[in-house]
């Protein structure tokens, strides 16, 4: 289901809950699938005693991947042409994340989106932009 340019306006939004109470196991799954085995994501002993963080934390790319799900659900399969983010705060086990895409421009068959993902405290953990082909 692709978006239609004629039905889009600047300021339109699409929002989805990405994850509720993020589990360490999901972070382990992401480590296994992506190949990023940095122990700061999966090894509580190392992360608290050596790396100096209160807990293991999610790969930024897991947050980007989950946020990508919201984007592809919105713009349709295979429609993204660009997707870029900054990781603005860490994501920890127990976090609940909500992502929003906001239309910033529709021109020449492309929709430009602003992307933001926030945690349960309203703190932005990811901020970015995306572009997708529209009909």
């Amino acid at each position: 289901m692709a978006l239609k340019a004629s039905e889009l306006s600047v300021g339109d939004t699409h929002a989805e809950r990405l994850v509720e109470d993020l589990k360490r196991t999901q972070i382990v799954m992401y480590a296994g699938a992506s190949g990023d085995y940095n122990p700061v994501h999966t090894d509580e002993v190392f992360t608290t005693q050596v790396a100096g963080y209160p807990s293991v934390f999610a790969h930024g790319m897991l947050t980007m991947g989950m946020t990508g799900k919201m984007l592809t659900n919105y713009v349709g399969d295979g429609r993204l042409t660009e997707y870029g983010v900054r990781f603005t705060n860490q994501v920890f086990p127990g976090d609940t994340l909500d992502a929003t895409a906001t239309v910033t421009e529709v021109a020449d068959g492309i929709v430009a989106l602003e992307v933001s993902t926030v945690n349960q405290n309203g703190v932005e953990v990811l901020k970015g932009t995306a572009k997708a082909r529209v009909d």
Binding site: G60, T81, E82, G84
Partner: peptide
């Protein structure tokens, strides 16, 4: 533990 991923962008 000293290095983090700050930004990522993909062009498809």
């Amino acid at each position: 533990g000293g290095g983090l991923h700050a930004e990522q962008r993909f062009i498809y």
